[in-house]
Amino acid sequence: MFDFSGLFKKNPPSRDVAKERLKLVLINDRTGLSPRTLEELRVEITKVISKYLEIDEESLDIQMTNTRSEDGTTVVPALIANIPIKKVKGKATTRK
């Protein structure tokens, strides 16, 4: 599962919790993607990217979200991945 500890730490208003929960539920309902499938996807993506880049697996975040389609008329699901890169493999450059 996703790490939501940061989200709940400060005991946010129930309204925000409701919104966050709904976001995920709606994505699952719309796409038929279960949290388990997403987790499998996360593992696979990590594997592939790790071949080329050294990534910070701890802070890796992948989630489904909704976004407006290009013409702005419909809402489509989108996969958002935030993958902090530590190092490009084979090069000495580091990214902060």
Binding site: P12, P13, S14, R15, D16, A18, K19, L22, K23, L26, N66, R68, V75
Partner: peptide, 18 residues
């Protein structure tokens, strides 16, 4: 209740349902 943070606001609902 919205003010108190215990109910989804109009903006929240529109945001979710688009």
């Amino acid at each position: 209740m919205v003010k108190r943070g215990d109910m989804l606001s109009i903006a929240d609902v529109i945001d979710l349902l688009a």
